[in-house]
């Protein structure tokens, strides 16, 4: 295959990944890794490098819209970034000592978990009693709804922080945004309404991914020939996806995609066990 053909096919594939990632809420980076490894037989290390870049582009590109609506909790994001960046750097470090097949199996498991998370029942309840630390760290805030500003308070800061540490490690190890785990920490442990947790998680993904991407760049995981079609394609797809989301509610589509992506995840796990990577 010539470089031109490879780049064009990859561009189209990355566009589809970005669109899919945006419609399902999984993020484009997560879909790019199976695309590169299973379809193009690219080494998973190059795939991880490219996926991290896609996550950063996605997260930073979407941040403007959310901040404008005043949903993102910037203080909470910054506080939790201590956990995610520390975890991400740690994850990127242990990645060298982790066999690629183990990484593929882990990736498949996280992908299935993420797919389940996107179709779960969402927490819309705003807590009115916060824990002691939520006051000390000034994390309680308000967010806009159809009925005006709603105040919410946070619980279990320590638990949320610990899950974020794990999310950071996985993000650094697998090259993904691990948005699903971030949302689990915020929705599940800290009891934040899902609109706030989803946007704050997106806000954090760029910084988390950048912390491990600088390690991967220096290790030579980021190849320009793969990087440019992936970044441009995923960004374009995510942009189209964001547009589509404003005019349609992809509930059914989301479930279908999540089932499809679970099969892809199973193939990653299967190949991982058979040492195909």
């Amino acid at each position: 295959m010539s470089i031109l053909i490879f780049s064009l096919i990859l561009l189209v594939g990355a566009y589809a990944a970005g669109l899919l990632g945006s419609l399902t809420g999984l993020g484009g980076g997560v879909v790019v890794i199976p695309l590169l490894t299973l379809v193009f037989h690219v080494d998973i290390r190059y795939a991880i490098g490219a996926a991290l870049l896609a996550s950063i582009a996605n997260s930073s590109g979407a941040a403007t819209a959310y901040i404008k609506e005043g949903i993102t909790n910037v203080r909470l994001g910054m506080f939790l970034e201590i956990a995610t960046t520390a975890g991400a750097v740690g994850g990127a470090l242990i990645a060298v000592f982790t066999p690629v097949n183990t990484i593929a199996i882990l990736f498949g498991l996280v992908l299935i978990f993420s797919a389940l998370m996107t179709i779960r029942k969402k927490n819309e309840h705003a807590e009115q009693t916060g824990s002691k630390w939520s006051y000390v760290l000034k994390l309680n805030s308000t967010y806009p709804t159809a009925n005006g500003e709603v105040a919410y308070k946070l619980k279990n800061i320590g638990g949320g922080f610990s899950i974020m540490l794990l999310a950071g490690v996985l993000s650094g190890l697998l090259g993904i945004g691990s948005g699903a785990l971030k949302v689990l920490a915020m929705d599940g442990a800290m009891r934040i309404p899902f609109k706030v947790s989803t946007t704050t998680s997106n806000f954090m993904i760029g910084v988390t991914a950048a912390a491990s991407a600088v390690v991967y760049l220096q290790r030579g995981y980021i190849d320009p020939g793969i990087a440019f079609p992936v970044v441009l394609g995923v960004l374009g797809g995510a942009f189209t996806g964001a547009r589509l989301l404003t005019i349609m509610n992809p509930r059914t589509l989301r479930i279908i995609f999540c089932i499809a992506i679970s099969f892809v995840a199973l193939e990653m796990i299967y190949n991982g066990f058979n040492h195909q990577f």
Binding site: M1, L4, F40, D43, R219, I222, D223
Partner: peptide
Amino acid sequence: GGFWYLVQSGAADMPDYSRFAGEGPGYTT
């Protein structure tokens, strides 16, 4: 950069990405 890359070497065979070699200092520093 991508456009320029395709103009210059688009016709060449694609590199073997299935084997991880790592990038040299030209791409990493």
